[in-house]
Design a protein around this nucleic acid. Structure first.
Lengths: 157, 157
DNA sequence: TTGACTCGGACATGGGTTGTCCGGGTACGT
DNA sequence: ACGTACCCGGACAACCCATGTCCGAGTCAA
């Protein structure tokens, strides 16, 4: 899985409850990561419609929906794409005992298992929202840390 | 996910019920894939203990256990490794609001979600065995095709 | 109108998977 | 007992995608 997924998720968490747009450079400074590469991940979120970009001075990114309405799966699919990890190359149609194409209208047994596992994985990621993650942060390091961090992010130099 | 997983799974299915060792070259010919690259996957299965290699003339590969005792997950982990897809880089310990290392003894909320999804994925793959796959093949293309294919594989030129 | 700040897509680089090869070792035939 | 032929095993390149970077188009504030 792409490493940018982690960055994007952390960004979504700190964007929770933010009313003013936040520039990508500030998010990068807060997380101490490459600003240009983080920008790419945020562009992916924008393309997926999870965040709205505001241009010009005082511009930046804002969540388009409430954090409760954004699942972890939404972010993962926005950054890494919606394609399943396993792709069947139909090797049953090759070799001396090749199956006829008409017998391959339905996916083979291996593919079915992979699709089912993929579904379970996505279902698990769908069960948690960004708001849930923010709540976990509050429970782990204290309820006051997230608002303090957001205040630091909101101030413009 | 590595494409070699698909090859390895197909090989395990055709090895079901085989009593004589099968050379990698013959498995490659049957599936019409690169013999040398397929050999690499079989070596991975051998390292994981799923198959036993027999050297010398009339050598090849044999399953070490009954097909009912080999899960799809076993094969996937043997080829692609047991490492989880998501790796936490602990960016919460970086930047101006870095969390103290002692506060990070437990994984962060994002990592917890990823671990749980990974667990669900593996659990789903563990539920199906190679024997189940062989049964699906018999149900899809007829019960006589698999034994006929195995007979073709067993004959030595 | 000016200016400066923002995002967006197009451009290099590096590690990992894919693909290949030859040597060590083993069992069979003589 | 020896020679031989076959098979597996780990070491060696080539390609591709993810990582990382840059500059131009657009936009809002002053």
């Amino acid at each position: 899985m792409s490493g940018g997924v982690e960055w994007a998720l952390h960004c979504c968490v700190v964007l929770t409850g933010m009313t003013e747009p936040v520039p990508a450079a500030r998010l990068a400074e807060f997380h101490d990561v490459s600003p240009t590469y983080l920008a790419k991940q945020l562009q992916a979120l924008s393309r997926a419609g999870l965040v709205r970009s505001v241009q010009g001075q005082a511009g930046g990114y804002v969540l388009t929906r409430a954090a409760e309405e954004i699942s972890v799966l939404d972010v993962v699919e926005a950054v890494d794409g919606r394609a399943p990890a396993f792709v069947c190359t139909e090797i049953r149609q090759r070799g001396p005992f090749a199956a006829t194409p008409e017998a391959c209208r339905t996916p083979c047994g291996i593919t079915k298992v992979m699709i089912e596992a993929d579904r379970a994985w996505r279902e698990s990621l769908r069960a948690t929202s960004i708001a849930d993650l923010a709540g976990t942060v509050a429970r782990d390091v204290g309820a006051e840390t997230l608002p303090r961090a957001q205040a630091w992010i909101a101030q413009r130099d």
